[in-house]
Design a binder for these strands. Sequence first.
DNA 1: ACCTGAACACCGTTCAAGT
DNA 2: ACCTGAACACCGTTCAAGT
Lengths: 193, 193
Amino acid sequence: MTKKGDKIGHILHVTIDLLSKEGGENLSMRGVAKASNISLSNLQYYYPNKEALLKAAIAQYFSGCQEAIMARMEQSALDQASSGSIFFEQLLDLLLYNAKESDQAIMFREISALSSRNKDLELAIDAYYKDYCAWLTELIRPHAQLPEKIVCLLVPYLEGYAGVGTVLPLSKKEVVQMLLDIIKGTLNPLCSE
Amino acid sequence: MTKKGDKIGHILHVTIDLLSKEGGENLSMRGVAKASNISLSNLQYYYPNKEALLKAAIAQYFSGCQEAIMARMEQSALDQASSGSIFFEQLLDLLLYNAKESDQAIMFREISALSSRNKDLELAIDAYYKDYCAWLTELIRPHAQLPEKIVCLLVPYLEGYAGVGTVLPLSKKEVVQMLLDIIKGTLNPLCSE
DNA sequence: ACCTGAACACCGTTCAAGT
DNA sequence: ACCTGAACACCGTTCAAGT
Protein backbone atom coordinates (compact mmCIF):
# COMPACT_ATOMS: atom_id res chain seq x y z
CA MET A 1 0.00 0.00 0.00
CA THR A 2 2.57 2.52 1.14
CA LYS A 3 5.18 0.92 -1.05
CA LYS A 4 5.09 3.71 -3.62
CA GLY A 5 5.26 6.27 -0.84
CA ASP A 6 8.21 4.45 0.66
CA LYS A 7 10.07 4.47 -2.62
CA ILE A 8 9.49 8.17 -3.16
CA GLY A 9 10.41 8.84 0.45
CA HIS A 10 13.62 6.94 -0.02
CA ILE A 11 14.46 8.83 -3.20
CA LEU A 12 13.90 12.17 -1.47
CA HIS A 13 15.92 11.11 1.55
CA VAL A 14 18.81 10.15 -0.69
CA THR A 15 18.46 13.42 -2.62
CA ILE A 16 18.56 15.56 0.53
CA ASP A 17 21.55 13.60 1.74
CA LEU A 18 23.44 14.12 -1.50
CA LEU A 19 22.33 17.75 -1.71
CA SER A 20 23.79 18.57 1.69
CA LYS A 21 26.93 16.55 1.01
CA GLU A 22 27.73 17.62 -2.51
CA GLY A 23 25.64 20.71 -3.17
CA GLY A 24 23.02 21.44 -5.78
CA GLU A 25 25.72 22.13 -8.32
CA ASN A 26 27.14 18.65 -8.06
CA LEU A 27 23.92 16.80 -7.53
CA SER A 28 23.14 14.62 -10.52
CA MET A 29 20.10 12.65 -11.54
CA ARG A 30 22.40 9.75 -12.26
CA GLY A 31 23.95 10.04 -8.81
CA VAL A 32 20.57 10.05 -7.08
CA ALA A 33 19.44 7.08 -9.16
CA LYS A 34 22.56 5.11 -8.34
CA ALA A 35 22.41 5.93 -4.61
CA SER A 36 18.72 4.98 -4.63
CA ASN A 37 19.48 1.69 -6.38
CA ILE A 38 17.19 2.44 -9.29
CA SER A 39 17.83 3.21 -12.92
CA LEU A 40 18.09 6.75 -14.22
CA SER A 41 14.97 6.24 -16.31
CA ASN A 42 13.07 4.96 -13.31
CA LEU A 43 14.00 8.03 -11.30
CA GLN A 44 12.79 10.12 -14.22
CA TYR A 45 9.48 8.35 -14.10
CA TYR A 46 8.86 9.78 -10.63
CA TYR A 47 10.62 13.10 -11.21
CA PRO A 48 10.76 13.95 -14.91
CA ASN A 49 13.57 16.46 -14.46
CA LYS A 50 16.05 17.76 -11.96
CA GLU A 51 13.90 20.73 -11.03
CA ALA A 52 10.96 18.53 -10.05
CA LEU A 53 13.23 16.37 -7.93
CA LEU A 54 14.79 19.36 -6.18
CA LYS A 55 11.40 20.93 -5.55
CA ALA A 56 10.07 17.77 -3.93
CA ALA A 57 13.25 17.29 -1.89
CA ILE A 58 13.14 20.85 -0.61
CA ALA A 59 9.48 20.51 0.37
CA GLN A 60 10.36 17.36 2.27
CA TYR A 61 13.28 19.12 3.91
CA PHE A 62 11.21 22.10 5.08
CA SER A 63 8.57 19.96 6.72
CA GLY A 64 11.35 17.97 8.37
CA CYS A 65 12.74 21.21 9.78
CA GLN A 66 9.41 22.25 11.22
CA GLU A 67 9.02 18.88 12.88
CA ALA A 68 12.53 19.04 14.29
CA ILE A 69 11.93 22.45 15.81
CA MET A 70 8.60 21.35 17.26
CA ALA A 71 10.18 18.28 18.77
CA ARG A 72 13.00 20.20 20.37
CA MET A 73 10.56 22.79 21.57
CA GLU A 74 8.52 20.22 23.45
CA GLN A 75 11.63 18.60 24.75
CA SER A 76 12.90 21.83 26.27
CA ALA A 77 9.46 22.58 27.67
CA LEU A 78 9.53 25.99 26.07
CA ASP A 79 5.80 26.54 26.28
CA GLN A 80 5.65 26.25 30.02
CA ALA A 81 8.19 28.99 30.61
CA SER A 82 5.84 31.82 31.32
CA SER A 83 8.55 34.35 32.01
CA GLY A 84 9.32 36.30 28.84
CA SER A 85 13.03 36.54 29.48
CA ILE A 86 13.59 32.83 29.89
CA PHE A 87 11.36 32.04 26.93
CA PHE A 88 13.35 34.20 24.53
CA GLU A 89 16.66 33.07 25.90
CA GLN A 90 15.73 29.46 25.21
CA LEU A 91 14.22 30.28 21.85
CA LEU A 92 17.28 32.18 20.63
CA ASP A 93 19.59 29.46 21.80
CA LEU A 94 17.51 26.95 19.91
CA LEU A 95 17.18 28.98 16.73
CA LEU A 96 20.80 30.10 16.60
CA TYR A 97 22.01 26.60 17.26
CA ASN A 98 19.71 25.43 14.56
CA ALA A 99 21.00 28.04 12.15
CA LYS A 100 24.62 27.08 12.59
CA GLU A 101 24.06 23.37 12.43
CA SER A 102 26.26 22.63 9.47
CA ASP A 103 23.88 20.54 7.41
CA GLN A 104 21.02 22.94 7.80
CA ALA A 105 23.04 26.05 7.04
CA ILE A 106 24.40 24.43 3.91
CA MET A 107 20.97 23.25 2.83
CA PHE A 108 19.46 26.70 3.22
CA ARG A 109 22.24 28.26 1.23
CA GLU A 110 21.78 25.73 -1.52
CA ILE A 111 18.05 26.21 -1.46
CA SER A 112 18.21 29.99 -1.58
CA ALA A 113 20.70 29.88 -4.44
CA LEU A 114 18.56 27.43 -6.34
CA SER A 115 15.48 29.57 -5.75
CA SER A 116 17.13 32.67 -7.14
CA ARG A 117 17.42 30.78 -10.43
CA ASN A 118 13.93 29.39 -10.46
CA LYS A 119 10.71 31.35 -10.09
CA ASP A 120 8.71 28.23 -9.32
CA LEU A 121 11.04 27.13 -6.57
CA GLU A 122 11.14 30.66 -5.19
CA LEU A 123 7.36 30.77 -4.81
CA ALA A 124 7.35 27.41 -3.05
CA ILE A 125 10.08 28.54 -0.68
CA ASP A 126 8.36 31.86 0.01
CA ALA A 127 5.28 29.90 1.02
CA TYR A 128 7.31 27.81 3.44
CA TYR A 129 8.88 30.91 4.96
CA LYS A 130 5.48 32.53 5.36
CA ASP A 131 4.28 29.43 7.18
CA TYR A 132 7.34 29.57 9.35
CA CYS A 133 6.82 33.25 10.16
CA ALA A 134 3.17 32.68 11.04
CA TRP A 135 4.04 29.71 13.18
CA LEU A 136 6.79 31.61 14.99
CA THR A 137 4.51 34.60 15.49
CA GLU A 138 1.94 32.48 17.29
CA LEU A 139 4.64 30.82 19.33
CA ILE A 140 5.87 34.19 20.50
CA ARG A 141 2.51 35.90 20.95
CA PRO A 142 1.87 34.76 24.54
CA HIS A 143 5.23 36.15 25.61
CA ALA A 144 5.40 39.49 23.86
CA GLN A 145 3.26 42.41 22.87
CA LEU A 146 4.55 42.83 19.34
CA PRO A 147 5.17 39.31 18.05
CA GLU A 148 5.12 40.40 14.38
CA LYS A 149 7.92 42.86 15.00
CA ILE A 150 10.01 40.28 16.79
CA VAL A 151 9.52 37.85 13.93
CA CYS A 152 10.54 40.57 11.47
CA LEU A 153 13.69 41.01 13.48
CA LEU A 154 14.55 37.39 14.15
CA VAL A 155 13.77 35.61 10.89
CA PRO A 156 16.00 37.69 8.59
CA TYR A 157 18.64 38.03 11.29
CA LEU A 158 19.00 34.31 11.89
CA GLU A 159 18.99 33.67 8.16
CA GLY A 160 21.82 36.15 7.68
CA TYR A 161 23.69 35.08 10.79
CA ALA A 162 24.05 31.57 9.40
CA GLY A 163 26.06 33.06 6.56
CA VAL A 164 28.14 35.82 8.13
CA GLY A 165 27.99 35.04 11.84
CA THR A 166 31.57 33.89 12.06
CA VAL A 167 33.07 37.15 10.82
CA LEU A 168 31.28 39.51 13.22
CA PRO A 169 33.24 41.51 15.79
CA LEU A 170 31.12 40.13 18.65
CA SER A 171 30.89 36.55 19.88
CA LYS A 172 27.76 34.46 19.54
CA LYS A 173 27.09 34.87 23.22
CA GLU A 174 27.27 38.63 22.96
CA VAL A 175 25.01 38.56 19.90
CA VAL A 176 22.40 36.54 21.78
CA GLN A 177 22.56 39.03 24.64
CA MET A 178 22.17 41.91 22.21
CA LEU A 179 19.10 40.34 20.65
CA LEU A 180 17.62 39.74 24.08
CA ASP A 181 18.23 43.36 25.02
CA ILE A 182 16.57 44.49 21.82
CA ILE A 183 13.55 42.29 22.38
CA LYS A 184 13.23 43.44 25.96
CA GLY A 185 14.05 47.07 25.36
CA THR A 186 12.60 48.10 22.04
CA LEU A 187 10.14 45.52 20.86
CA ASN A 188 8.38 44.53 24.02
CA PRO A 189 7.61 47.78 25.81
CA LEU A 190 5.54 47.48 28.94
CA CYS A 191 3.53 50.50 27.99
CA SER A 192 1.93 50.88 24.55
CA GLU A 193 4.11 52.53 21.93
CA MET B 1 51.17 47.18 -21.26
CA THR B 2 47.77 46.83 -19.69
CA LYS B 3 46.60 44.63 -22.50
CA LYS B 4 46.80 41.47 -20.42
CA GLY B 5 44.99 43.21 -17.58
CA ASP B 6 42.33 44.34 -20.00
CA LYS B 7 41.79 40.84 -21.27
CA ILE B 8 41.48 39.41 -17.78
CA GLY B 9 39.22 42.28 -16.80
CA HIS B 10 37.02 41.54 -19.77
CA ILE B 11 36.85 37.86 -18.93
CA LEU B 12 35.86 38.61 -15.34
CA HIS B 13 33.29 41.15 -16.45
CA VAL B 14 31.72 38.61 -18.78
CA THR B 15 31.82 35.98 -16.03
CA ILE B 16 30.05 38.21 -13.50
CA ASP B 17 27.48 39.10 -16.11
CA LEU B 18 26.76 35.46 -16.93
CA LEU B 19 26.85 34.49 -13.24
CA SER B 20 24.12 36.97 -12.35
CA LYS B 21 22.10 36.12 -15.46
CA GLU B 22 22.32 32.35 -15.43
CA GLY B 23 23.58 31.41 -11.99
CA GLY B 24 26.63 29.49 -10.90
CA GLU B 25 24.92 26.24 -11.69
CA ASN B 26 24.47 27.11 -15.35
CA LEU B 27 27.69 29.01 -15.81
CA SER B 28 30.02 27.12 -18.10
CA MET B 29 33.63 27.57 -19.03
CA ARG B 30 32.60 27.15 -22.64
CA GLY B 31 29.94 29.83 -22.25
CA VAL B 32 32.38 32.31 -20.71
CA ALA B 33 34.92 31.57 -23.43
CA LYS B 34 32.37 32.09 -26.18
CA ALA B 35 31.00 35.31 -24.66
CA SER B 36 34.58 36.55 -24.24
CA ASN B 37 35.38 35.69 -27.85
CA ILE B 38 38.24 33.43 -26.92
CA SER B 39 38.71 29.71 -27.12
CA LEU B 40 37.97 27.39 -24.23
CA SER B 41 41.62 26.45 -24.03
CA ASN B 42 42.64 30.08 -23.95
CA LEU B 43 40.29 30.76 -21.07
CA GLN B 44 41.82 27.79 -19.29
CA TYR B 45 45.23 29.31 -19.73
CA TYR B 46 44.19 32.24 -17.53
CA TYR B 47 41.92 30.25 -15.22
CA PRO B 48 42.85 26.58 -15.20
CA ASN B 49 39.48 25.51 -13.81
CA LYS B 50 36.03 26.76 -13.01
CA GLU B 51 36.85 27.31 -9.34
CA ALA B 52 39.73 29.64 -10.15
CA LEU B 53 37.54 31.62 -12.52
CA LEU B 54 34.73 31.94 -9.98
CA LYS B 55 37.11 32.95 -7.23
CA ALA B 56 38.60 35.72 -9.35
CA ALA B 57 35.18 36.88 -10.51
CA ILE B 58 33.86 37.05 -6.95
CA ALA B 59 36.91 39.01 -5.79
CA GLN B 60 36.30 41.46 -8.62
CA TYR B 61 32.64 41.66 -7.71
CA PHE B 62 33.26 42.40 -4.04
CA SER B 63 35.66 45.24 -4.74
CA GLY B 64 33.13 46.61 -7.20
CA CYS B 65 30.50 46.56 -4.45
CA GLN B 66 32.69 48.45 -2.03
CA GLU B 67 33.39 51.09 -4.66
CA ALA B 68 29.70 51.41 -5.46
CA ILE B 69 28.77 51.92 -1.81
CA MET B 70 31.56 54.46 -1.36
CA ALA B 71 30.44 56.35 -4.43
CA ARG B 72 26.82 56.48 -3.36
CA MET B 73 27.88 57.44 0.12
CA GLU B 74 29.73 60.49 -1.15
CA GLN B 75 26.90 61.30 -3.48
CA SER B 76 24.37 61.38 -0.68
CA ALA B 77 26.74 63.36 1.49
CA LEU B 78 26.29 60.91 4.27
CA ASP B 79 29.41 61.91 6.15
CA GLN B 80 28.31 65.47 6.68
CA ALA B 81 25.09 64.54 8.40
CA SER B 82 26.16 64.99 11.96
CA SER B 83 22.79 64.15 13.44
CA GLY B 84 22.69 60.47 14.34
CA SER B 85 19.07 59.98 13.36
CA ILE B 86 19.44 61.33 9.85
CA PHE B 87 22.67 59.44 9.34
CA PHE B 88 21.18 56.05 10.15
CA GLU B 89 18.03 56.77 8.20
CA GLN B 90 20.09 57.47 5.10
CA LEU B 91 22.41 54.54 5.73
CA LEU B 92 19.59 52.03 6.15
CA ASP B 93 17.85 53.31 3.06
CA LEU B 94 21.06 52.87 1.13
CA LEU B 95 21.93 49.45 2.48
CA LEU B 96 18.44 48.02 2.20
CA TYR B 97 18.10 49.34 -1.31
CA ASN B 98 21.42 47.82 -2.09
CA ALA B 99 20.42 44.50 -0.62
CA LYS B 100 17.27 44.19 -2.67
CA GLU B 101 18.84 45.31 -5.91
CA SER B 102 18.07 42.24 -7.96
CA ASP B 103 21.49 41.61 -9.45
CA GLN B 104 23.27 42.03 -6.18
CA ALA B 105 20.90 39.86 -4.17
CA ILE B 106 21.21 37.11 -6.75
CA MET B 107 24.98 37.40 -6.83
CA PHE B 108 25.26 37.14 -3.07
CA ARG B 109 23.05 34.10 -2.99
CA GLU B 110 25.13 32.46 -5.69
CA ILE B 111 28.32 33.38 -3.93
CA SER B 112 27.20 32.10 -0.55
CA ALA B 113 25.99 28.83 -2.06
CA LEU B 114 29.25 28.38 -3.92
CA SER B 115 31.22 29.14 -0.77
CA SER B 116 29.42 26.50 1.23
CA ARG B 117 30.84 23.96 -1.21
CA ASN B 118 34.35 25.31 -1.26
CA LYS B 119 36.55 25.95 1.74
CA ASP B 120 38.92 28.11 -0.27
CA LEU B 121 36.15 30.33 -1.57
CA GLU B 122 34.61 30.53 1.89
CA LEU B 123 37.82 31.86 3.41
CA ALA B 124 38.12 34.47 0.67
CA ILE B 125 34.53 35.57 1.20
CA ASP B 126 34.92 35.67 4.98
CA ALA B 127 37.86 38.01 4.47
CA TYR B 128 35.73 40.30 2.31
CA TYR B 129 32.97 40.35 4.89
CA LYS B 130 35.43 41.15 7.65
CA ASP B 131 36.70 44.07 5.60
CA TYR B 132 33.15 45.18 5.05
CA CYS B 133 32.34 44.97 8.77
CA ALA B 134 35.45 46.92 9.72
CA TRP B 135 34.70 49.55 7.11
CA LEU B 136 31.09 49.90 8.25
CA THR B 137 32.16 50.06 11.89
CA GLU B 138 34.40 53.03 11.20
CA LEU B 139 31.70 54.67 9.13
CA ILE B 140 29.27 54.40 12.02
CA ARG B 141 31.68 55.19 14.85
CA PRO B 142 31.29 58.99 14.77
CA HIS B 143 27.53 58.63 15.04
CA ALA B 144 27.08 55.99 17.70
CA GLN B 145 28.55 54.77 20.93
CA LEU B 146 28.53 51.07 20.16
CA PRO B 147 29.39 50.80 16.46
CA GLU B 148 30.45 47.14 16.75
CA LYS B 149 27.06 46.20 18.12
CA ILE B 150 25.23 48.04 15.38
CA VAL B 151 27.35 46.29 12.77
CA CYS B 152 26.57 42.95 14.40
CA LEU B 153 22.92 43.80 14.08
CA LEU B 154 22.89 45.26 10.60
CA VAL B 155 25.23 43.03 8.60
CA PRO B 156 23.47 39.71 9.26
CA TYR B 157 20.06 41.36 9.16
CA LEU B 158 20.55 42.92 5.74
CA GLU B 159 22.02 39.71 4.43
CA GLY B 160 19.00 37.75 5.60
CA TYR B 161 16.52 40.41 4.58
CA ALA B 162 17.64 40.10 0.99
CA GLY B 163 16.44 36.52 1.07
CA VAL B 164 13.30 36.55 3.16
CA GLY B 165 12.31 40.24 3.23
CA THR B 166 9.35 39.79 0.95
CA VAL B 167 7.55 37.27 3.15
CA LEU B 168 7.67 39.25 6.41
CA PRO B 169 4.47 40.48 8.05
CA LEU B 170 5.74 44.08 8.11
CA SER B 171 6.48 46.34 5.15
CA LYS B 172 9.96 47.49 4.29
CA LYS B 173 9.16 50.94 5.63
CA GLU B 174 8.06 49.51 8.96
CA VAL B 175 11.18 47.35 9.08
CA VAL B 176 13.41 50.39 8.54
CA GLN B 177 11.58 52.22 11.33
CA MET B 178 12.00 49.22 13.62
CA LEU B 179 15.73 49.10 12.96
CA LEU B 180 16.01 52.84 13.61
CA ASP B 181 14.15 52.42 16.89
CA ILE B 182 16.45 49.61 17.89
CA ILE B 183 19.55 51.59 17.06
CA LYS B 184 18.27 54.61 18.93
CA GLY B 185 16.76 52.72 21.84
CA THR B 186 18.95 49.78 22.64
CA LEU B 187 22.27 50.15 20.91
CA ASN B 188 22.99 53.83 21.27
CA PRO B 189 22.18 54.71 24.86
CA LEU B 190 22.99 58.22 25.91
CA CYS B 191 24.29 57.03 29.21
CA SER B 192 26.85 54.22 29.47
CA GLU B 193 25.40 50.72 29.68
C1' DA C 1 54.34 33.05 -22.46
C1' DC C 2 50.26 32.45 -24.96
C1' DC C 3 47.01 29.77 -27.63
C1' DT C 4 44.98 25.64 -30.12
C1' DG C 5 41.88 21.37 -31.01
C1' DA C 6 41.04 16.54 -30.00
C1' DA C 7 39.66 13.32 -26.60
C1' DC C 8 38.01 11.75 -21.89
C1' DA C 9 34.30 10.76 -18.76
C1' DC C 10 30.51 12.98 -17.22
C1' DC C 11 25.81 15.42 -17.34
C1' DG C 12 20.26 16.34 -18.23
C1' DT C 13 16.88 15.18 -21.29
C1' DT C 14 14.37 12.75 -25.02
C1' DC C 15 12.47 8.76 -26.98
C1' DA C 16 10.93 4.29 -28.54
C1' DA C 17 10.23 0.12 -26.33
C1' DG C 18 9.08 -3.31 -22.93
C1' DT C 19 5.91 -5.36 -18.78
C1' DA D 1 1.29 2.26 -14.32
C1' DC D 2 5.97 1.27 -13.95
C1' DC D 3 10.55 0.49 -15.80
C1' DT D 4 14.31 -0.01 -19.39
C1' DG D 5 18.55 1.27 -22.42
C1' DA D 6 20.24 3.88 -26.37
C1' DA D 7 21.12 8.32 -28.18
C1' DC D 8 21.37 13.52 -28.13
C1' DA D 9 23.88 17.69 -27.13
C1' DC D 10 26.19 19.47 -23.49
C1' DC D 11 29.78 19.90 -19.64
C1' DG D 12 34.81 20.30 -17.02
C1' DT D 13 39.22 18.73 -17.49
C1' DT D 14 43.43 16.70 -19.54
C1' DC D 15 46.90 16.58 -22.91
C1' DA D 16 50.02 16.89 -26.75
C1' DA D 17 51.00 20.34 -29.90
C1' DG D 18 51.79 24.74 -31.98
C1' DT D 19 53.75 30.01 -31.96
